[in-house]
Design a protein around this nucleic acid. Structure first.
Lengths: 194, 194
DNA sequence: GCGTAACCCTACGCACGAGTAGGTATGCTC
DNA sequence: GAGCATACCTACTCGTGCGTAGGGTTACGC
């Protein structure tokens, strides 16, 4: 039943989606939807939650914490893009939707925050292993940028049905890792003093 | 008057924003809004358009095409984050909103495509200067990732009122440029052959 | 066969908000 | 000052879609 909701939400968007259509698509009638899942908002949150959890599990399952940083990043990215590729609907819409609608932005922000934290933790771990350290804010922002770039490519992937998830992951790795590795080795870029 | 619209749209989101509230906020009455700007959709598009144009101008004005790639990127980023910092409302909401709502997603996609094209062109230019060349798709995807990362940091900036735009630009430069520079010099990351 | 209960449906009430009709005031022409 | 136009407002209509009330249907106990 959630599948039907995800499908309709993804096709129409949250507001344009009518409960009637969702019910019809699920093969039941509207009062049943209300009986099982509650209001439209609750239904949307349920969708968001399920997709989010699945995604997190897919990533967490792939990126074991005891691997070296580049290997973790690579596996995490591969899992992530694999997931998005397999659930284009779920991702593209729920995610893009949730971002804009105030009631859900918070929910989504929490999810993203968890992801950022994981990435930041990974970077921090790698840094310490090299005996280096940078401010927590910087770390967070870098992690944020990486997550953002990844989300952006996920959007790209969702819009290009013929694209291969793994190849996309490789491309992401090229941008992210080469940059991140430089940072980890203490190479930093500084603004010109003009 | 557009200012009022932007403000309300940003506070409430497109759907939750009522024309009454916009009118009230602008200090006029609803029929006037309709007389001057047309329907709600047209009004939103007008907002989107104005903000988008302003942003593009800010960037284009800063990143002259005859500068070296890193300089162009840096100036572009500085202008961009400066703009977002100064127009947090306009950005955060219009952008985040437009992304999710089908009728406007196209409009926004066009804007982003222009930006991606500019970035891709920049990278291509720098590559050719080094006598190298990579596939157009790869170029586009890298540019897409960079733009995505930048947008993501813009979101971060919009949510952190105390953060300094220029510092954010520097951070972005660190992630983007160090990675991009590696790519430009022919360093690429390849997936392990497991 | 009749009561009853679980289950699901059709058909509605109701609120909200986009867009408009029709009226009022202010200023300008002659 | 009468006629007219422009600028604006208040107060309405009407569609849409969420959430629900109340009725039908099937299965089971007795």
């Amino acid at each position: 039943m959630l599948d039907a909701a995800v499908k309709v939400f993804s096709r129409r968007g949250f507001h344009a989606a009518s409960m009637d259509e969702i019910a019809e698509d699920a093969g039941i009638s509207k009062p049943m939807v209300y009986a099982y899942l509650g209001t439209k908002e609750e239904l949307f949150v349920a969708c968001l939650h399920r997709e989010g959890t699945r995604m997190m599990q897919a990533i967490a399952g792939a990126a074991a914490p005891d691997l070296p940083a580049d290997e973790r990043l690579w596996r995490g990215l591969k899992a992530f893009f694999g997931f998005v590729g397999a659930h284009r609907d779920g991702w593209a819409v729920l995610y893009r939707q949730a971002r804009g609608e105030q009631p859900f932005a918070g929910e989504l922000a929490t999810m993203r925050a968890r992801l950022v934290e994981v990435v930041a933790g990974m970077l921090d771990h790698a840094l310490r292993a090299e005996g280096r350290e940078i401010a927590a804010v910087d770390l967070e922002v870098v992690a944020y940028a990486l997550v953002g770039a990844t989300e952006s490519l996920a959007d790209w992937l969702a819009d290009h049905p013929e694209a291969e998830p793994e190849k996309t992951a490789t491309r992401m790795m090229n941008v992210a890792w080469l940059g991140a590795a430089q940072l980890l080795h203490g190479v930093t870029w500084r603004p010109p003093a003009d």
